[in-house]
Design a protein around this nucleic acid. Structure first.
Length: 402
DNA sequence: TCTGGGGTCCTAGGACCC
DNA sequence: TCTGGGGTCCTAGGACCC
């Protein structure tokens, strides 16, 4: 009887899922801001002499073989006529806020995936019209191309968007799985990168269709827990919900030196800057971290991490710096170093209980510094610290490795 | 050709506790 | 004299994504 009721239950109308992804976002923003760049190979990235890589490039540059993560020096050889620009993150964030506001005006159910990408859930009848409207509105208000995929779940929406790029939109439904999903390379599935692709290729699995008919138990042997998800994906199944309010799990900053360094003093200065950056962002988020990790990359590109759990969560620059130094100490003679990073995890929300009256000197100095940083940026803060070194006498700066 | 930065999630071993 | 089993936390490394 119970089963019978289940069968009779009114069939649920499922929402449509849209994935909106701005095309070559940073490069497109630069082309909108500077019309002379339009139709030309625009390449955004770090300085080649500082070992920078390509962040994003316009489709004109892609046609010449330039790709994200390519070393800038190589991009310059591939594309000597290219327009090479530094990353102007503040500008991209500003545009991103505008884009997200437009997307949010179509539905409250939105998951922001990154600076240039978001999932939307809309009523069953509104998928295609919304895709068209969004593309027109973003083009009209901001001049930016955006691709949109429409389907019944995140996976198919994502792949539909991928297939629609650049500057298009498309759908990909469950009934299209065999004809349109299965012929695609397994690299279209989220979670399959170069390593997993190679593993699967060795088993003779190259397309999503081949993955779908591959025995699940052999797949689990090879890939563990992810096998089950991939197997579902290969059949176009995906039950992930939209995460409309994702929680932050960690905050990290890292820096690659322009040249490998050997000097512990230089390392200390770098750690200090990273610790201050992370402390600032923790306080901005009103969070404290229970775990601090140090990341080192050596000149041969070998990378190690060291982690310490604190007895009490912290948002203090000095505590983050000290923890990083403690982790670094046993490694102080393992140079030369190429990269150093600090990560704060085990994040806890906290609400400030004490008012300014009760705060100690370090706290009040930090608060003033944070305000400077928020208003004028970190370069201005550092200049102020050099001009008024007294304001920089918080305990952290007295620490050293020995 | 010499390989960024900021994230998430998974695995696996060991410590520790009951 | 031989050696449990489960749960949780911590740590290190790696794959992947944008």
């Amino acid at each position: 009887m119970g089963k019978r009721i289940g069968v009779l239950k009114k069939k649920r109308k499922f929402k449509k899922i849209l994935l909106c992804d701005l095309d070559a976002f940073y490069a497109s923003v630069e082309q909108v801001d500077n019309p002379v760049y339009r139709g030309k190979p625009v390449i955004i990235g770090g300085r080649p002499e500082a070992r920078g890589v390509v962040s994003t490039c316009s489709y004109e540059a892609r046609a010449l073989g330039v790709r994200s993560a390519l070393p800038m020096a190589k991009a310059m050889r591939l594309c000597p006529e290219g327009i090479f620009l530094p990353v102007n993150m503040n500008r991209y964030k500003e545009i991103s806020r505008h884009v997200m506001a437009i997307l949010g005006s179509y539905t409250p159910e939105m998951e922001r995936v990154s600076i240039d990408e978001a999932y939307l859930a809309v009523s069953p009848g509104e998928g295609e019209q919304t895709a068209i409207a969004i593309r027109e509105k973003i083009r009209h208000e901001l001049g930016l191309p955006v691709s949109v995929g429409v389907s019944s779940n995140k996976l198919l929406a994502k792949i539909a968007c991928e297939l629609a790029k650049p500057d298009g939109w498309s759908t990909l439904w469950k009934e299209d799985v065999k004809t349109r999903l299965w012929p695609l390379s397994i690299r279209f599935l989220p979670g399959i990168g170069p390593v997993t692709e190679k593993k699967l290729n060795r088993l003779g699995v190259k397309t999503i269709g081949e993955l779908a008919v591959f025995p699940l138990d052999s797949l689990q042997h090879l890939l563990g827990k992810t096998a089950l998800n991939l197997h579902k994906y290969s059949k176009g199944e995906d039950d992930r919900n939209l995460e409309t309010t994702p929680s932050l799990k960690s905050i990290s900053e890292e820096t690659t030196f322009a040249r490998d360094i050997k000097d512990s003093k230089e390392m200390k200065a770098a750690l200090m800057e990273l610790a201050e950056g992370i402390g600032y962002r923790l306080r901005l988020q009103k969070m404290k971290a229970r775990t601090i990790s140090l990341k080192l990359r050596f000149s041969d590109f070998r990378t190690i991490t060291r982690t310490i759990s604190l007895t009490e969560a912290t948002d203090k620059d000095s505590m983050i710096f000290q923890s990083a130094c403690r982790l670094f100490l046993p490694l102080a003679d393992t140079f030369p170093w190429r990269l150093v990073g600090i990560r704060a995890s085990g994040l806890e929300n906290f609400t400030q209980l004490s008012l300014n009256r009760g705060e100690d000197k370090e706290k009040s100095v930090t608060r003033v510094q944070d305000e400077l940083r928020t208003r004028f940026g970190k370069e201005v803060l550092y200049r102020a610290q050099r001009l008024f070194p007294d304001s920089n006498d918080n305990p952290s700066s007295k620490n050293s490795f020995s």
